[in-house]
Structure formats: structure tokens, C-alpha cells
Design a protein around this nucleic acid. Structure first.
Lengths: 206, 206, 206, 206
DNA sequence: TATGAATGAGCCTTCATTCAT
DNA sequence: CATGAATGAAGGCTCATTCAT
């Protein structure tokens, strides 16, 4: 991969093409898995030539990380903005879950790649950065749960387990959520929060 | 792969060795991913030679399905036995979740392989059988939720969403559950059921 | 095998190299048999590398069919041109046999491969096309014999048997014909026709 | 291959089984080619086990030569008996061709193997013996033609070419002759001799 | 800048044969 | 006698990547 062009006009075209490549890679990796996706398929999907692809990309692994960077960083930013606002823990929890699920729904391919290729990635130093972002996001969630416990609005026995339950619900989502399915991402988020907050046991007065 | 021996003595040894191969494959596939695991690594892990491995196995993919068969079929059998017993929906739910989580904890590698290699497998006809078992298990869970709704013990707005929430919690488990971790599989199961049934909202009288 | 280049200059070089590969394959397959010829031998014969060979060829079998396509199609074309001309059946027969034998002599390797690898090929769908060409050629020969019988110049009891006799003579030719042997292909063709037409029995007035 | 048993009773069973193996090998080699036939297929065809097969056979190549020995030696013996009898060259020629074609018809598989696997065999010292038998047979045929020329009954311009024509006709036969086809081997032999002797040109007085 | 030919290590699998039991 | 587990070299093929043009 030669250095990207510096003149703005060329740079714009370059960036657009690289984005297209990453997009195509996300789709292909999600559909067939990273290892089972060949460079050949990628050039077919992008319309580039063999050599052309390597103008925008250092290596196949580079593409994998490019996909993941599009996933975690923006979500983390949003999440930080949400918890920075003044609100009750429940409101924070609901807002975070909504933003999170919308983001997931907008990046189904990226999510699939993220959860599947952990083994592929773990040995690469760049993985640490991706993981840092994910951990930071999870800590924000944990903080909200803790805040609720502290102010008495949540009755949580094992905070870690509750966090893992929520992570499970949402991270499992890409396995079944369809872009134009019965439920919108927001509805799913609300439904999950309802379950998490109130459970499904029938009670008098509900 | 030649036909397995028929004489009982030889057959026993044969079966034991094949089981060892499948076991090693599960570990390797879970650790590195199916595609990134080479036959070379497998023979190193089993102590067999290149050709020797193919006495017990038809192909690498055969091994993948052997791993999955060990996962789904026994769980499904247990689950059927549980729901066959007379009990309240809550008891059924708790028992199912316990059995399920214990099984998952005993087959962490298998689970990791199962959730990760879907793309690898979906084109193979044997996948249909694995999927059928999984679907049957999920239908048992759905049936229990429905029974609770019918007898008024569960207040569920969207049964499918609740089922997906539970599936998410448990299927996500192999990502973090450690064999001798802080919580036993039974504790995790109980914790998940507590959350699912009662939620985390603080209420008077709890 | 990537798609062949489209720019004429590159295409020409590509075609020439592919032809060289097919040529070398014909030689090697004829000398050692298809199965006993390894890709290794082929790359040694072509000067290409392992991977380089696969730029010009899809598979070893592809090479086998490439050899056969060079054999049958051009012969069939020539044969059609010959029978299209106005002439007596004897002249047609002699012209066909000459063209045929010259073609065989120019493609000794291809012929050897063709007659030997039938079993290898018969399961491949491309074999049907090769066979169609061969059948068409044989039908042209049969037509000439029939025309001779119709116009009274040939006295044939069993046309099929005569055709098979001629086919045998010529198809057996690659087993013994040497490129610069005592007899030219034309002489062989004429000799065969003499035998076929007049036999070897001594008669008064010959 | 251990030494064959010497006690007559055991020897008989041994010989019968070995003959069965050779028979199965002939069929398999003819159908699929020598290289494409695996030992696995052979044990399936014979009902023996892997190791059992090697009680009757030294190696796969051994089998190939066993097939060919069944082919050439008996034919040569018959041919010698025929030319040893007092008769005209034409009678000799007709008798030889009949015996030959009957033998070919009874050993279609062997013939196919013989003509196809030349390349496989040529490097083996045992090939010399097979070839010697074949050459001897061809010399007998050549002798008959020569005798006819000498006594004035055959008018032959190029004896070698005529011999090659006849060899071609008959050796090509296994490509199309079916066990219970329209023509018996004897009819085919007679037809070939008719063509070879008298040709197909219409003449007054025929 | 863009091309596509070329690389060569590495992949999964097959196979004839041997030998301890 | 017979078995079938084991061998390990060799097979055909794929693939991410490089580089002369």
C-alpha cells in the first residue's frame, strides 16, 4: 500500500474507494468467514484488480481491523455522550441500549465479524486497541448498573452477572435481527430493557 | 476412512481413538478457528500420523460435524426428559436452564465452534440435522414460556423476544465462562433465571 | 485460472503460453499416461512454477480436454470441407483418409492420449463434446461408404464392419507411425485405401 | 506375498482365489484404468481384506502383468498350432484371424488393459516377455502374408503396411465389440478377412 | 497509477504397502 | 493364516502477496 495521496481532490477519491473496499470486506467476511474469503472474491466484489486492491490496503488482516475500527470507536463515542448527560440510571440504561442496538443493526456484518474472528485477531497487536474500546464500552454499562444500585433504584445481587446477561442479549442479536424485520432496533432495545428491569413474572398490579 | 472394525474388542479401541480425535479437534477449532487449524496441528495434537488420522475421519469437515453432534443431540435428549416431567413452568424453566448451562460448561469448545463456524457449515447437508436439533431445543424453551403465559404465571408481552433474550444470555456464556471460575454453571443458570423472572428493578417488599 | 487478459497484446502472449502448456501436456500425457504425469513434471516441462501453471489452466483435467479439443475439431472441419466438394465416393474416401492420416501424424501425442484416456474422461461432461465431434467425423466416413454403395461403385456387405475396419487401421496408426519414418502419412493413407478398395488377393489382369 | 502353499488341497484353493483376484483386477483396470483403480476398489471387488489381498499378490503391478500373461501366452500357443497345420495361406489367415478374434472377445478387459497401459509397463522388465509373445504372434501373421505372396495367391505391395492394417482392425475391436452384439467374433473375423482379401470395390462378376 | 503474471509455501487428501497382533 | 491400523511420501490445488511493465 503506497502512502495515500495528499492533494485533497485525489485524497477524497482515495478515501471513498478504500471505504468501499472495507465495506465489501465486511460483507464478505460476515457471509463466509475471514479465512474462507479470498482476495479473489474481494476483487470481484469491489471491481478492482488484483494489484489495484493493494493500493488501498496493506493486507487482508489490515482489512479485518479496518472493519472493526468502524464498529467500536463510533459506538464508544456515542456511549460517552449519553452517560455524560444528567439522567437516572434507568434512563441511561435505556438510552445506551437503544444507541447500542441501533448501532449493531447498522453494522450487522461488522458485528458478525467481530464476534467470530476473535481467534484470528487475538495475536495481532492491533487487537488490543479494539479490545480497549470494547472494554471501555462495557465499563460504561457496568457504571450505569452500579449507579442504579448505589441510588437504590436497582436491586442487583451479582452486578457482573447482570452485565453479562445484557451483553449476551445484545451481542446475540446479529444472529437473528433482520434489517427490515418485525421489530425495529429501538423496539428490541426497549423490550430487552423491560425484561432486564422487570422480569417476566406475573405480579399483582401490573 | 475405512469402515470401522466390527469385532467388539477392536471396535472399542477404534471408538475410543476416534473420540480422542474429535476431542482434540474441538479444542483446536475452538482455539484457532476451523480454517486456521491445519491437519498438521491436528496430528500433532493427537499423536497420530498424517495418514493415521484419516483412519478415524473422512475429512476435516467430518470432524467439524462430529464435534457438533456431540453438542446438540445429548442436550436435546436431556431437555426432553425435563419437560416430560410434571412441574410448573418456572420449575421447568429453571431446570432447563441449569441443564443447558451445565452442558455448555462441559462443552465450551464445542459451543465456541458451533457459534463461530456457522458460515463454514451452512452449505453442508449435515448442517440441517444439527440445526434441527437446535431448533427442537429452542422450541422446548418456547413451549415452557408459553405454558407460563397460559397459566398466568408469566406476564410476557413478546414471547419471541424473551426467548431470544434468554438464548443470548446463555449462548454468550462460552465467551467468558471459565471452567473453575467464580460461579458454577448452576449459579449462572440460577442468576440468569432470577434476572429473567424478576428483573433488577428495586421494589418494595423485596 | 483468472480470466484471460482482454487487451490484445497481453492476450496474444497469454494465448501463446497457454498453447505451450497444452503442447507440453500432450507430450507428457502421451509418454507417461495422464495419471502418471504429475503437475511437477508439467511445470518442469513448461518452465513455469507451480502456481504459474494455474494461471493458464483450471486443473489437470482441463489440460486433458484442451489436448483433445485441438485434436478433433480441426479434423472435423477439414473433413466437412472435403465431402462438400463434388467428387466420386472413391475420391472422397481417398481424400478423407489422407487428410485424416496427415492430421493424425501431426498429432500423434494427442491421438495417443485420446485413445488411452477414455476411461478417465467418460465421466466428465466435456467428454460429450469431444465425442460428438468424433461421431460426426465417423458419420462423414459412413456417408461416403454409403454413397459408394448407392452409386454401385462399392460392393459392401456390412457397411458398419467396413467402417470399423477403416477406423481400426487409422486409429491404430499412432502405435507405430514415426514422424520421419519410411512411409509418409500420405503413403500410408493411400496404402490403406488400396487395401480397403481392392484387397490383397491376386487376380488375373492386375 | 508369502510362498504359495504346497499341499495340493490348499494349493487349489489358493490358485482359485488368486485367479479371482486377477479377474477382478482385469475388470477394474479395464473400466477405470490402472492408476485410477485403488487397492481399496480391488478389495471391495474381491471381498478380501486389505492384508488378505497381499497374500495372493506381490504388488499392484504384479496384478497388471498377471492380467497380461493370461492374454498373450494362450493366444500365441493357439496361433502356433494353426500355422503348424498344412493349409493354404488364405486358410491360415482366416483361421488365425478367427482364433484371434475369439480370443480377443473372450478377453476384452485384458485387451483394453494391454493397449492402454503400455506406458505404465514399458519400464518394467516383465514387459519384455509380454512383448516377446506379442511380437512372435505378429511374426506368425507376417509369415502367412509372406507365404501368400511367395505362392502367388496374394498380391501385396507393402507387406508391413498390410500387416499393420490387419493389426489395426483387430486391435481396435475391443473398443466396440460387445459380448452379445449383432456379430459374433467369428463373423467379425470373416468380414475382416473378406475386406482384406477382396476389398470393397465393385467388380464385374462378383 | 494500475495491471496481471508470477511466486512458492502451504493446504487437504490419497494411496500402496508393511507389520504387530 | 488373516486382520486392519499405521505409515509417510506424493498428489493436485489455493492463495496472499510482489513487482516488472
Amino acid at each position: 500500500m503506497p502512502a495515500p495521496p495528499t492533494r485533497p481532490k485525489l485524497r477524497a477519491r482515495y478515501d471513498a474507494r478504500r471505504a468501499g473496499v472495507v465495506e465489501a470486506a465486511a460483507r464478505a467476511f460476515a457471509a463466509n468467514g475471514y479465512h474462507a474469503t479470498s482476495i479473489e472474491q474481494l476483487i470481484a466484489a469491489t471491481g478492482l484488480t488484483r494489484g489495484g486492491l493493494y493500493h488501498y490496503v496493506d493486507s487482508k488482516q489490515d482489512l479485518l481491523f479496518a472493519v472493526l475500527d468502524e464498529l467500536m470507536e463510533p459506538l464508544l463515542e456515542q456511549a460517552r455522550a449519553i452517560v455524560a448527560e444528567q439522567a437516572t440510571p434507568e434512563r441511561h440504561l435505556r438510552a445506551l441500549t437503544r444507541a447500542w442496538l441501533v448501532h449493531v443493526a447498522d453494522h450487522l456484518d461488522h458485528m458478525v465479524v467481530f464476534t467470530r474472528e476473535r481467534a484470528t485477531l487475538e495475536r495481532d497487536p492491533r487487537w488490543a486497541q479494539v479490545r480497549r474500546a470494547r472494554d471501555a464500552f462495557e465499563r460504561l454499562l457496568a457504571g450505569v448498573l452500579e449507579a442504579g444500585r448505589a441510588d437504590g433504584s436497582f436491586a442487583i445481587e451479582d452486578p457482573q452477572l447482570v452485565l453479562l446477561a445484557l451483553l449476551g442479549m445484545v451481542n446475540h442479536t446479529p444472529q437473528w435481527l433482520k434489517p427490515r424485520g418485525r421489530l425495529s432496533p429501538e423496539q428490541v432495545a426497549d423490550g430487552f430493557c423491560d425484561v432486564l428491569l422487570d422480569g417476566i413474572r406475573a405480579r399483582r398490579g401490573r
